[in-house]
Amino acid sequence: MTDTITMAHGAGGKQTSELIHGIFEKHLGNEYFTADDAAVLPPVCGRLAMTTDGFIVSPQFFPGGNIGKLSICGTVNDLSCMGARPLYMTCAFVIEEGFRIDELDQIAAAMAKTAGEAGVRLVAGDTKVAGKGQCGGVFITTTGVGEIVEGVRMSGACARPGDAVIVTGDIGRHGTAILLARDDYGIEAEVTSDCAPLWKPVEAVLSSGLRPHVIRDATRGGVGTVLYEIAAESGVGIRLETEKIPVQPAVRGVTGMLGLEPLYLACEGRLVIICPQEETGRLMEILHGQTCTEGAAVIGCITAENKGRVVMTTQIGAQTLLPEPGNELLPRIC
């Protein structure tokens, strides 16, 4: 095989086949991984959840992961948020001509490892090659299907006044890690992405009989965006205790330098969980015992007043609105 991707790898002939066997099947192959036009899967008895997500990230390798790991986590976590055990996934690659094959190999290896951790199988895939300059490096789209745990009905519209608001770890790390990896602002800090598959902790919560009202993963737009979505969909207010929101010191340092709000920075391994107040204690106990959610914290509660808004109790004990997320994040200097 050549060292880099050429247009021939996307032409459907010998080179395409080499790429599929030499990279994708090598890492991702399993009993259901298909060489035919579609994967054939055994019957499932529960209700299904299905989701799809496209991934573009620059740079494609960053502290704590790469685009391959991200593309599995994103879809696994979306399924998990619906209480669905991730079963099968498909992936479609758009690879830029000239992309290094050893890097593609690392990306596929990360996908395999993460899929294994989440217990999901890749069953079908597609590869296209785009001409130089038509896409940046590699774009991945993953689609996943999962089986919803019996009796679980969660949605963004299910938050009720009095419920507790939980975040499963310190926030803003993925966004900060990417910002640092791009090196646009000359800042150095040891921040790794929080990128992680979260089915295991969700499974632990659900199998203990707890029934949270809402689970959302805080990706693009961060925890702040997710909270505004929940407030709108459920027609409730959210009150946050500013000082209880976990933020790693280095993330605070970076956001302080650039005048950014950590609540709007992307996470890729953090859930926002809204649960009945009386379940909070047990839920926290379970989360603290699982990998990736050890740092879970109760950061606020759902209120009947201030519908559609997120209100923060500040350091001086006053209340203020969390500004609604909107524009492109730009550093504030002058």
């Binding site: 602002y185 000359g186 800042i187 800090a189 010191p249 340092g253």
Partner: peptide
């Protein structure tokens, strides 16, 4: 300089 672990020239 270092601010809570974030460093810059």
């Amino acid at each position: 300089v270092d601010a809570s672990g974030a460093r810059r020239k």
